[in-house]
Amino acid sequence: MKHLFIRHLLAGLLLLPFLLKGQGFDAAYSIRYNTGLATSKIEPAANGFRQQLAHSTALELELRRSDHLGWLIGFYFEGIEIGKSSVFVGDAVEPFNMIHPYSSRLSSVYLRLGVQYNFRILEGDLSLGLLAGPGAVNYSRDWNVLNILVIEGNIIRDNPAFTTFTDESTATFRLQAAARLQYTYWFTPALAFSAGLEYNQSHYISGGIETLRGERYEIKDQEFFPGGAPGRVSPLIYNINYDRTTQMPDPSPVIHQFQFTLGLTCRLISL
């Protein structure tokens, strides 16, 4: 259902130039890939240090009536992946009774509208752009859960191992604003590559639930119950039992990002 919704949005964006036919616009589609150079921490510090990687893809339409001013509309799909792979100097013991018990991901889709001013330099455009728009964000956490079959103190299963339980939140809603500087080199009249830098920040609007610790992501589908819930075939299969409290991230802080962006742009005929 979620994918169907996104496909409808993308189809609408692809059809938009045809609705604007006769208005005298030049239209260009860009596919962008952004990789995070610096991103705000998503996981609560109380859960211990984790590594993070942010990247995003975007489909963007630029409409121009003049050489300099372009109007932007696009969809921006972002993923921030969080995990932990190795030892760090000064690593603290985490508040769990195992090491690195989960990896997680913050997935977002934003509809962004904006404007950019283009300076013609050599065979390309140096563009300064401002964009903003609302988005929906979903947080998911993959728990590494160990299943062991024990009867009378003896481990019975031949090959006990971890399996993955995924908790997923309902959507929260945010507003993102971005500023971008990029150079687009047109090596034919219809096709260009671009590279640049983008800063964006995302503000919480609504969603999640109020808890004693404050607002947080509400779990929609919970497969795993940290805090000592019995195993599914209790008492013979032991899942991970947590001695201490695990924390979910708080969605309310502003998420800041600084990104490097690459793009491929295809210009349509004038509308």
């Binding site: 195992m98 090491i99 690195h100 990896s103 590494n144 062991i148 024990v150």
Partner: peptide, 13 residues
């Protein structure tokens, strides 16, 4: 390569 590594001990008693 971006990895996630988890681990725990189990005491049968």
């Amino acid at each position: 390569q971006r990895l996630h590594v988890a681990g725990s001990e189990f005491h049968s008693d």
